[in-house]
Computed example of a mutant assay.
Amino acid sequence: MAFSLEQAVPILMRKEIDWAEKNFPAVPEKIPDVVAEDPGWRRQWLNTKRSIDQGQGAPKRPNDPKRRRDVAHYLAMLGHLEFELIVLGCSYAARNYEMPAAWKMCILKQGYDDMQHAASFITRASRMIEEDLWAGIPVPYRKSVDLYRPILQRDLGGFLAAVGLHTEAYPAWTNLSGGGAITDPVIGAWSLHEIEEEAWHLTFLMPAIKQYLHTGTDEEQDRRTRQMVADDQYFIEQAVQPAYKNAKEFAVGRLGMNPEVLYGYEHLNERTQHIYRTIGIEEGYWPAYLKNS
């Protein structure tokens, strides 16, 4: 049976999904200033813009049924992960952690934006193979959620490490959807707009993390910084490095994405150094391998 948005999604969300599928933003000629300020999102934006200019920004569905199913499951997995990690993570943090009201509003704004991104991925994946992937996907992704959730729900510092760094700051460098890699015309058309939204999220998250790390007594600042570095290194080892292996084997090896999408993984230390400098982590706290790279 063909996928039905009317049956899968309540009308409250369906209205926005319908609108986004029929109304595409204009393609800007100049990179937005907020994107240009971050080297990760800058690179993603320029690669994606190049693909659009070359006629690759609104690709046709894969012709091979097996590859189409693989792409659809990949897109749906991204959507469900974005929802469960970012959207629900932001909701949890805004409800449970003490912070300025403006921070809570920014966190909820981030969650709302990423909810729309997740909805687009799941809906477009469902349309690609005419199956309701809103109801679930036959792809194991719960392990990733279970990896992040204990730290995300530990305290505000855990949330900032899990969501601030590892679902926002690092993906600016490692996001595989850049460069026209996503084979869907709607997602391709909105890709530059979504990159700009993600860059705006970092204009809040990076200063917020810096303020968090440099608030309180010297002892408290030292403790928070050491914990942030420890959390970051844990996620790099347990999540980012396995994701690199999966990207090589699945995204490049199986889906046939351009190996260029692996650039961020292969230059990860550069991104970590940028993040640490931006949030004010002095080199004395850096792991030895990072100081010497």
Results as ranks from 00 to 15, higher is better:
160 L>W: 04
162 A>H: 01
163 V>K: 00
163 V>M: 03
164 G>S: 07
164 G>L: 09
165 L>C: 09
165 L>P: 00
166 H>A: 00
167 T>C: 08
167 T>D: 07
167 T>N: 07
168 E>Q: 14
168 E>P: 00
168 E>M: 08
169 A>M: 12
170 Y>N: 09
172 A>R: 12
173 W>N: 04
174 T>I: 15
174 T>M: 04
177 S>L: 12
177 S>Y: 13
178 G>I: 00
179 G>Y: 03
179 G>V: 11
180 G>L: 08
181 A>S: 15
181 A>G: 06
181 A>I: 09
182 I>A: 04
183 T>A: 13
183 T>R: 14
186 V>D: 05
186 V>M: 04
187 I>Q: 04
188 G>T: 04
189 A>P: 02
189 A>Q: 06
191 S>G: 05
191 S>T: 09
191 S>K: 14
191 S>Q: 15
193 H>W: 13
193 H>Q: 12
194 E>M: 12
196 E>F: 04
196 E>H: 09
198 E>Y: 11
198 E>F: 09
198 E>P: 05
199 A>M: 06
199 A>Q: 03
201 H>C: 06
202 L>Q: 10
202 L>I: 07
203 T>F: 01
203 T>L: 07
203 T>Q: 10
205 L>C: 07
206 M>C: 03
206 M>H: 06
207 P>F: 05
207 P>D: 05
207 P>C: 06
207 P>W: 03
208 A>N: 02
208 A>Y: 04
209 I>W: 02
211 Q>T: 08
211 Q>P: 00
211 Q>L: 02
212 Y>V: 02
213 L>V: 06
214 H>T: 11
214 H>K: 11
216 G>F: 13
216 G>A: 10
216 G>P: 08
216 G>Q: 11
219 E>L: 09
219 E>C: 02
220 E>C: 05
221 Q>H: 02
223 R>W: 05
226 R>E: 13
226 R>L: 10
227 Q>R: 13
227 Q>Y: 00
227 Q>M: 11
228 M>T: 05
228 M>F: 14
232 D>S: 14
232 D>G: 10
235 F>T: 02
236 I>D: 05
238 Q>P: 01
238 Q>C: 05
238 Q>L: 05
239 A>N: 13
240 V>L: 14
240 V>I: 15
241 Q>S: 08
241 Q>R: 15
243 A>N: 13
243 A>W: 12
245 K>M: 09
246 N>M: 13
247 A>G: 09
249 E>Y: 08
249 E>Q: 12
249 E>H: 10
250 F>P: 00
251 A>N: 12
251 A>K: 09
252 V>E: 04
252 V>L: 07
